[in-house]
Structure formats: C-alpha cells, structure tokens
Write a protein that binds this DNA or RNA. Structure first.
Ligand SMILES: [Zn+2]
Ligand SMILES: [Zn+2]
Length: 709
DNA sequence: ACGTACGACGTA
DNA sequence: TACGTCGTACGT
C-alpha cells in the first residue's frame, strides 16, 4: 500500500532556471501579515501547519517529502505525462527551476550517511490546491522550484524550526541554493487562501517579492538532502532529534570546510608558496635537516620537505593566522629563518640523539655525518694524538688502533662527547657555532646591531618574542616613524605581517604598502660582533650587507644608559636630513656604517622619522619619555609616529585589545582606532574620558580599561 | 607538541 | 613520469 510518508515529486518536476523573483511575485501569494498573525506564536503556527498538511494529505504519516532527482537531461524538460500517484494529483509539478548545480552532491564519492549529505538547504513553497481539483489528470496546480538568488534572512529560514536552527542556517552554504518550491495554480487562477500552504523562500532584498516567512507568516519548508538524488522536504513535524542531528552534522561540515578548502578530490588543497618572498627565492641551504634528506644532497629522501630556509613566509603567515586568528604564539610564531638561525646560533642542531628519536632519519644522518667527517676528525685527532703521544712514544699503528677503538665506542654510545680526546678541544665538529649572547646580553650593553633586510624578508619572531621588539609584530608600518620601545631600541618599523591591519595614516605609508602577496621587511637582530664567526657563508654575506635574502643593512643603535633614563629632554637640534648625523632628537643615535649605501626607501624612512618627530612633537616627546619610564600594561608600547603623534600600540595578538592604537596628538588630545577604524565618538571610552588627556595616568588607565573592554 | 615518515598532489 | 613538497598520521 502506498503510505504517503513521502511524496514522490521529482519525476513530475519541470525544471527551469529563474534568476529573478519577478515571477515569484505572483507565486508567493501569501497573505500579508496581519495583527493576528503576529500574535500567533511559532509553536502554534507549527501545529497549524501540520494540521493543514494533514488536511491536505490525510494519509501522511510523516511529513516529509522525498524528491527523487531525475537525470539532469530529463529535468530539463520534463513531460508531465505519465501516471500520477495520488499525491501528485494534488501537488503536481510543472516547473522546476533548475540551477545546474543545485543538486550536485558535494561529496559524490562519499555517498554519505544521511544527513552528512546535507549539503544544500532548499526552501520550499508549497501552495497546494484544494482537494477539489479536477480529475482529468490535468494539472491544476504546479510545483515550482524557484531559485531564490538572494539568501533569505536567517529568520526566514528558521522560521519553522526551533530557534537554535538560527545558527545552523547561518552556517549552511545556502546562499546560492535557495529554492522556492511552489505549488501553483494554473495561470490566472485565484488561490484559495484557506488551503494554501505556503512556505516562503528567501527574500530578495529590496524587491519585495517572496517575503521572508516571518513577514508573511508562513513557515518555510526545508528540503533536506538524503542521498545523492533524494531530498526530503521537511516540515515542522520532523522530530527534534533529527534536527539536532542535522545541526550537528551541519556544524561538522562547516567546521571541516572552514578548516580546509577541499580540493576536487576531497583532499585538502595544497598551499603553494608565493614564489616571491625572500625565502621562496632562496636556494636550498644544503645544511638543514630537509636539505640533507634530499636526494640531491645525498639524503634518503624520507622527510620529503623543503629546505627550512625556503619556507614561504607568506604561506607561513597565512597558515599561522588562519589557525590562530588574532594571536601569535610565542615560539610557534617562529619563522623558519629564525628557527634555523636560532638553531644555528645556539648550536642546538639536532646533534644529540634523544633516546627515542634516535632512529630512522636521525640515525641515517648520524651515520652519514660520521662517515663524511670521519676523515677530518681522524686527521685532527691523529695529529693531536701524535703530538700528545710523542711525549710518551706512542706508535702510529697504536694511534690508529686507538682511533678505531674510539669510533667503536662512539658507535656504541651512539653519540660523540664534546671530545674523547684526552685534552678537551671543544666540539669535535669543526666550525661549530659559538653561542651568542642572548638578547639580554646586548641589551645591557651600549649598543645593539640591527640588520635590516630591506627588500624582502620576514618578521623575526624570535627576536620579537625575546625582547621588547616583540611589539614589532603588532606595529603598523608608518613611514617616517621612529619607534621607541621600552628597551630603548630604535628601529624602523617593518611592514606588517600579511594579515595585520593596514595603517591608519594611509598616505604616509603608501609608498611602503605591500601588496597582498608581498612580504614584510624583515629585521634580524644579531648579537654583538662576532656572533657569526663560525658560520660559513651567510654570516659573511650578512656582514657585507648582502645575503641570500637580500641586502642587509646594519644599523647600530646606541641604547640609552638605563641609569640615565632621567628623561631629560634632548637638546634640540635642527632637523637633520642626513641620518649619518646623530639624531639628537632623542637619546638615541643612529650611526650609519660606511659600507651602507642606503636605498632611497630606507633613507627617507629614517630621515622622515627623525625630522618629523621633532618640530612640534615636544610634548609628545615628553610624554613618550614619561611613558617609557613607567611600566605600561602588558604589551603596550609607546611609539612616536608621523603626524607627529604618539601612538600607544597593543602589540600582542593575544590581547583583546589587539590592533588597538591610541593616538595621542601633541595637544594631548587622543583618539582610538581599532584595526584602522576610528572608534566612534560615541564610544564609551570617550565618555569616560575627556578627549584630551590631562594626566599621564589617564593614558595607562585607558589602556587598562581598553584591555578589559 | 614535536619529529619522523609517507602517500598524494601539482608541476616541470 | 619524476620531482618537490604538502598534508597528515603516527609514535614519542
Ligand atoms: Zn635547507
Ligand atoms: Zn614565499
């Protein structure tokens, strides 16, 4: 027997595409909302609707409709001839709007379980004709599936369902897939309102047709995809659990989609390096783990990764930021170059076999290393040993045997001690890097060297996280701005990481503004002289101002004596146009090493900063000085920027105030911006504080408040 | 969380 | 087809 649990509709649906809502106007003959309608609760409406359904289709047990999707070709023009099922006597189809993508399963090969396949949400309008239709088989009413171009407001979609569906519908990729399924009397026929059961489709904004369900006071129906070809028309009577299930699955899908853009095959799409950044343009270093793994470097090709020096900074940043929107994780945020550098600097190259990891690739590498360097080591050792043994008359053969014995021992221990040689000679591997003084080292000294990679590069986050330069990451690029960080370091702010908000002073930074795919200027911080004595190529080049990542400029910065931070305002000197002159506008001087020929960009950058900061920035300087003497709330940094103005920047992405800048003008008026947008005057903060700062405490107060709110 | 390993993808 | 390397699983 034919229980009308489901209505087979598909075969009777005609398909046509409709891009506008023009026609729908007449289709959506819903009653205008009346006062009573407004009063009717959702629940009531749901019940009412079900009643209507049951009146129309007494046999219906479960109020769901399966639409079987015929092959696309058949959908195009569907002949209505054919036997009609009972249901179709009442709900006949004539036009089915087809958008060619509308029923394409998103995951064809996965033929998933039920609701997992819920890929599109389709809304259905059904205006069933009165039961008193003629029996000739001629359709009196038609079902129309109309593509509603505009996504309906969520409220419209969710009208029928529990309120929590709101979230769901937001998540669903419904924007392109709103359809109105209309049962429609033959043209010109007036429709009986009592029997009309209409669900609304989404409304196209502004054109007034096809109003959202809420407004029309008609609940919406949702087609739910069952399997590849089956869709369920859902009504309010669908059990709640089903809803929840559906929602859960929808959320899952949403999450997955958000997590990864799927390639056609369903796999995660490959991210490609930008090919433009410094890292991308580098050559394989030949030294890193992955290089050594490569066939071309004689490796076993097991790791199959690209050289760490060549990891694209853009992709890197993208990944980082997409994973952690609004936050930088110290440590994790380390850029490859830094990583390597740090590794090289500290000499912590995976030399030590950590018990468990000492296998596979490591083992291979160790073997290779010892194999490759054995000769050198042996020579060295023999030489020393000979010298050492001369005194006691050790023979050459004995020495040789000794060496072999050492090797064996080494093999057993699977690692080399710094030296097995009687006289400790330091690392057995020649050229082992010496340990640099950490950031705290140089900082306590009188100067530090900044190497600026001006063409390309990256944000060196090991610096960033290690010192006050941390704020680099949050800094906005401002041409001409000179940054005064709490440590007293002065440096040129690099352009922001890819996703950083653009600077406020658009005019000022335009020359520096990077294209989307371009990468920020990098700053690398090196320790005191000789930090790279042991390094082979890179350091040499760095010192001569050239490296693979571009041209380096060493900028010596004298740090203020911590004790002298007495905030005596600097003596005024005329604005300098040459940065080789010590800029006495503050207690920081620049000194340009001879070998540097500054490129124009850099030059103007510096010069502008110095010059512009001076003229009427007196009060700002004073304020800055004071700010620098006090402890600002975490990750707030005072910066003198073009304008001149003093900016207080929240540099931590972790902060709820990330991207917030407090701009203080020289008259101590201030405004606040968040991500380049000015806080509206009506904002609470402005109400609580005058627009003008009278007291220093107000500044930090404000910051703290900002941090809270 | 990290290092290792490897299948799979995109391109030369 | 080979190669480079991305995405991910897995063990630690
Ligand atoms: Zn490498
Ligand atoms: Zn790149």
């Amino acid at each position: 027997m034919e229980q009308l649990n489901e209505l087979g509709l598909g075969a009777r649906l005609e398909v046509e595409e409709e891009t506008g809502c023009r026609e729908e106007e007449k289709l959506c003959l819903n009653p205008k909302p009346t006062k009573e309608d407004v009063v009717v609760s959702m629940e009531t409406r749901r019940v009412v609707e079900e009643e209507q359904w049951r009146r129309l289709f007494p046999d219906i047990r479960k109020c769901s409709v399966v639409i079987v999707r015929p092959p696309a070709e058949q959908l195009k023009v569907w002949n209505l001839r054919g036997t009609e099922r009972r249901s179709s006597k009442r709900v006949r189809s004539r036009d089915l709007m087809l958008n060619w993508d509308w029923m394409e399963p998103l995951e064809p090969e996965n033929g998933g379980s039920g609701a997992k396949r819920f890929v599109k949400k389709v809304e259905v309008k059904i205006a069933a004709e009165r039961a008193s239709e003629d029996e000739t088989g001629k359709p009196k009413s038609t079902l129309r599936l109309t593509h509603c171009l505009e996504a309906a407001s969520d409220s419209a979609h969710c009208h029928l369902h529990n309120s929590d569906r709101d979230d769901l519908s937001k998540e669903l990729p419904q924007r392109d897939h709103n359809y109105c399924l209309d049962s429609n009397p033959p043209e010109g026929n007036s429709q009986s309102e009592e029997t009309s059961l209409m669900s609304s489709c989404g409304q196209k904004d502004g054109d007034g047709c096809c109003l959202p369900a809420e407004k029309k006071n008609v609940p919406s129906m949702v087609l739910r995809k069952l399997t590849g070809d089956q869709w369920i028309l859902r009504s309010a009577t669908i059990k709640k659990e089903e809803e929840e299930e559906e929602e859960k699955e929808a959320v899952q899908i949403k999450n997955r989609k958000r997590r990864e853009e799927l390639s056609p095959s369903g796999r995660k799409r490959r991210r490609q390096a930008c090919g433009k950044c410094a890292a991308c343009l580098r050559k394989n270093c030949g030294k890193c783990t992955f290089c050594l793994d490569m066939r071309k470097f004689g490796g076993p090709c097991r790791l199959k990764q690209k050289c760490v020096m060549r990891r694209c900074v853009v992709v890197n940043a993208r990944n980082k930021w997409s994973k952690l929107p609004n936050r930088i994780q110290v440590g994790e945020g380390m850029e490859p170059l830094d990583q390597i550098q740090a590794r090289e600097e500290t000499g912590s190259t995976d030399a030590q076999p950590e018990s468990s990891h000492w296998r596979g690739w490591r083992k291979w590498r160790h073997e290779r290393d010892s194999g490759g360097k054995e000769e050198v080591r042996k020579k060295r050792w023999m030489r020393r040993r000979r010298r050492w043994g001369q005194r006691r008359g050790t023979t050459e053969s004995k020495i040789r045997k000794e060496w072999d014995g050492l090797l064996m021992k080494e093999e057993e221990e699977e690692e080399t001690q710094p030296s097995q040689f009687p006289i400790s000679t330091g690392p057995s591997v020649p050229g082992g890097p010496s340990v640099l003084s950490g950031p705290s080292g140089p900082l306590t000294g009188t100067h530090v060297q900044l190497n600026l990679t001006l063409d390309t590069g990256h944000l060196s986050s090991n610096i960033l996280s290690d010192s006050a330069l941390t704020c680099l990451s949050g800094l906005l690029p401002q041409e001409g701005s000179v940054l005064h960080v709490s440590t007293g370091l002065t440096f040129i702010p690099p352009p922001p990481p890819p996703l950083s908000p653009p600077p406020l002073s658009a005019a000022a930074i335009q020359p520096l503004q990077l294209k989307e795919e371009e990468e920020p200027v990098g700053i690398e911080l090196y320790g005191r002289s000789g930090g790279f004595g042991e390094q082979e190529k890179t350091e040499q080049e760095v010192r001569t101002g050239i490296s693979e990542t571009g041209q380096y400029y060493e900028v010596e910065v004298e740090l203020p004596d911590p004790d002298c931070d007495q905030c005596t305002l600097p003596t005024v000197s005329p604005p300098t146009s040459d940065i080789t002159q010590p800029a006495s506008t503050c207690d920081i001087t620049y000194k340009r090493p001879e070998f540097i020929s500054l490129n124009p960009e850099c030059f103007s950058l510096l010069r502008g900063g110095v010059r512009n900061a001076v003229p009427d920035g007196w009060s700002l300087l004073r304020l800055l000085k004071m700010l620098r003497r006090m402890v600002l709330p975490a990750h707030w940094v005072a910066v003198l920027a073009e304008g001149p103005e003093l900016q207080l920047l929240q540099c931590s992405r972790l902060s709820s105030m990330a991207d917030t800048i407090i701009h203080v003008q020289s008259d101590h008026s201030f405004h606040i911006s968040v991500q380049t947008r000015l806080l509206p005057d009506s904002h609470q903060v402005y109400k609580e504080h005058a627009h003008r700062l009278a007291h220093l405490s107000q500044v930090t107060q404000q910051e703290q408040q900002g941090g809270r709110g």
